[in-house]
Structure formats: C-alpha cells, structure tokens
Amino acid sequence: MMQRTVISILIVLLGGFLFLEACKKQEDATPALIPLQFTVPSGFPEPVYKFENNPLTQQGFALGKKLFFDGRLSKDGNFPCASCHQQFAAFATFDHPFSHGFNNQFTTRNAPGLFNVAWMKELHWDGGINHIEVQPLAPIVAENEMAETIDNVIAKLKDDVAYRQMFKTVFGNEEINSQRMLKALTQFVAMLVSADSKYDKVKRGAASFTEAEEAGYQVFQVKCAACHTEPLFTDNSFRNTGLPVNDIVKDIGRMRITGNAADSLKFKVPSLRNVFLTFPYGHDGRFYSVGAVIDHYRSAVVNGPTTDPLVKDKITISDYEKQDLLSFLRTLTDSAFIGDKRFAQAE
C-alpha cells in the first residue's frame, strides 16, 4: 500500500514535471515564420527590389511596421518614420512643404509619399540613396530629422524584450543589428503598394472614366506621360522642370550627389499616383495645388542650361484641358491604400 502511494506520487510528480516541461518548451519555441506574398499588380513591371535576399514573412512585416511607428528610432522619441510619412496622405506629410524634425527644425525638402517604393532604383529627390534598405539611415541620423545615431537606436531596441523576441522570431536568434532592423523596415515599406485607384479599376475593366476623366486621360498621355510614365506614373528619371531656385535653401538637386554640372537643379520625377493626397508639390513643396503645378508648366518655366527639353518651351494646356486633366488626376487617388488596416498603426 505504502509502496503504491509512493509510486502514485512519483507518477503524479513526473506527470507534472513533464507538463511543466511541455509548457516551457512551448514558450521557448520560436513560432514558425508565415510567408507573405508580394503581388505584382497587373500591368506593373517586376520590382527593382530583390525580395529573395529578404524573404517576406508576416512576422518580418509586423516587425518592420512596429519600427516604422516607433518614436524610439529618433533622439527624443517624438519622430518615428510615421511622423513625416502619414498614411492618410499616402505616407507623405499632410499639408506641409517641409516636415518637422528634432528640436523645432524643418527638413529642406518635401517628404514624398511612400508607395510602390519596391520599384525605385534610387530614392530621395536627388537619388542619393541607391538601395531601399539603406534609406532609413538618412532620416535617422539627420540632425534636422530624427537626430539619432545608429548605435543608440540599436541599443534601445536591444533593451526591449518585445523587440528581442520579434527579432528572434524573424531572424532565428535575438541578435539585433542595423542590417536586421533595415531589412525588417524594408519588408513593411516594400509592401506599401498602391494600385487600386479608379484608374486601376478602369484599366482592369472594373470601372469606367467619366467623360471629363477620359478627356483628361487623353491630355495626360500627350502632355505629361513622357515623364510621368504609366503604370508607376514616373519614369524615375531626374529632370530640371524650370523651377526658379529658392535663395534660402539653394538646393542644387542631383548635382549634390553626382558633382556633375549637367545634373544641376535636377530632381526626381515624382509619381502622380495619389497626387491629390500628397500636396504641397515640388521638391520644396512650393506649389499648394495641382492646378498651380499645371500653371507652372503652362507659363512659369524658367530656362537655364539644364532645363528639360520637354518643358523648356512650356506646355500648352488650355483651361478646358486643365480642368479635364484635374479630373483625370483625381482618379489616381487610392482610397483602399490609405484605408488599408495592414499599414495602419496598431491601436
């Protein structure tokens, strides 16, 4: 009897131990990575970014998203990526020619919207960034933006148990370094695809243009599409569109990167997708309406040695054509994109 009791107790203890072990194991186990699909929208070319070097997973995307919205990537905690890249403005800065940065400073260029970035070979208005993965380093260390050091950011992430767990899940162990942070951020940013505007629906045969939109599309194809090439609505080239130089900023554009006088005052052609959400316009945000930009091309182009041949004689657009053009450009607003919960800050 006594022996039986001892055995029973032992069995219970053993069972309990095994149970505890099982629990522990479950806690330690890294959840399996769930692959995430990057879908190339119909009519789009293959993306520039090579996803095979950074396999997309739900967990990698979630980590990138957490980083994108985390103020700790900035010196004082106030300037996450999302402070200048707001979803409701197609990830541009809403209604600001320049964005606010650390210590009441302004940036010197207009924050571009973030969408279809996976198709960009060069980033920034001057194309100074040659790879999407290293882009976040620029705002993180810029004194007038996030004003932080790479080492400090990594140290802050390492201090956070939640991050350690997420990095471990995504990359196999708890090591946190700049490469891993940047690859995770890239998973989030590269997934920001905007290809569901009315224009896209028309292209898919799921909607039709109004008469004005159709007329505007005709004008667009003849007078704008050489630079704002479909389907990305940019050819990603650098051009001088004849904007007079801002005497305070004195921004020489692409020449700052190449050192080549032939690149003076050239800036990257921005996409016109979501153009009604990303105002103001121009590399320094000098135009407050799409109409003002069209008026620039109609009548205010300044000619210099590098002014683009396509605009140097100005572009003839009648008042009627301008109205139609505006109607067409409104069809490039992608409401599904700015309302997409996958890209919204976690509540």
């Binding site: 100074g128 380093l137 370094n177």
Partner: peptide, 18 residues
Amino acid sequence: GARSGDLDPAKGMFWTWN
C-alpha cells in the same frame, strides 16, 4: 543594401545621404 559585420553602417564608414 544593408550589410553587417565590418560593413555595418554603424561602424561610421557609410554615408547615409549619398
């Protein structure tokens, strides 16, 4: 793109604006 080890931009030998 992003590299690690001695090529880690945190080593202070990588230009972030260009």
